[in-house]
Write a protein that binds this DNA or RNA. Sequence first.
DNA 1: GTCCAATATGAAATCTTTATAAATTTTTTC
DNA 2: GAAAAAATTTATAAAGATTTCATATTGGAC
Lengths: 141, 141
Amino acid sequence: MNQNFDEKCKSRGLSITVQRQQVYETLMEDKSHPTVDAVYMAVRKAIPTISRATVYRTLETLADEGLIQRVLHPGSSARYDGNPAPHAHIVCKVCGKTEDCMDSDLNPMSYPSRSSTGFSITECEITYRGVCPECQRKAQA
Amino acid sequence: MNQNFDEKCKSRGLSITVQRQQVYETLMEDKSHPTVDAVYMAVRKAIPTISRATVYRTLETLADEGLIQRVLHPGSSARYDGNPAPHAHIVCKVCGKTEDCMDSDLNPMSYPSRSSTGFSITECEITYRGVCPECQRKAQA
DNA sequence: GTCCAATATGAAATCTTTATAAATTTTTTC
DNA sequence: GAAAAAATTTATAAAGATTTCATATTGGAC
């Protein structure tokens, strides 16, 4: 199916399963930062018997392995992003829509030094919150 | 109790209630970025009959008014920070401990321009994820 | 192909959070 | 201050999100 993905699993000691392949492929095709449930619904079209628990576990596993990334969403359900490269996100606090934020004027992400925190840092997430154009329009009406 | 807090409520048109006062005071005293449940447990010592729903609602209200701030926590429960000023956080992905991240070498937060996104942005959140010193030690053992 | 380890399933359990209606408290008005 | 109006709290339930668990199935090494 996706040779690249299979190799990445293999190199990490993960078994290659149809469920993992399908979840990954679905996320690569859906750029909307879908919720777990949205991924579950999409994957069911290909694997009708897949369990919701499997989708949860698979997404978590792939994120732990750095193949995808988890995107936070205030007070609501988790979302995932098929692009594992660090980049900022912008979330509408009315409808929850989540988009990449690629403004080149933004300061580049920097990491705190190990010495100052004692943490070993592996991920950085920047989230802007606001109101998307559509919800602004609806609010005016 | 806290004159300052009472005034802030008044200026925002919020009623002053013992529940709000106590939730706010609890959060000011607890610098650990507690979960809603932790706040609920602490406030119960002062107001044993307080409802969990009230704590949820109160924290949300105070955050909406900018008196406190909500801190995201990947896939888990929300946490709150009594300091409403924007600052980065660092979260341990093993135990969930959340700390302020005040490294002065970090790039300052910048906001994307309105024109590039169409969003009206009100909040920015920076979260680093990694493993805290304690959990690193435990993992070695 | 056989076997063992890893993974998936399905249902239930466990959080976490929100909604609702009735009761209470605050604020406003006089 | 007392009464009326508005806002808030309570308690319960419901909804939603996520995890757990025992069992069944599958993948990969041999």
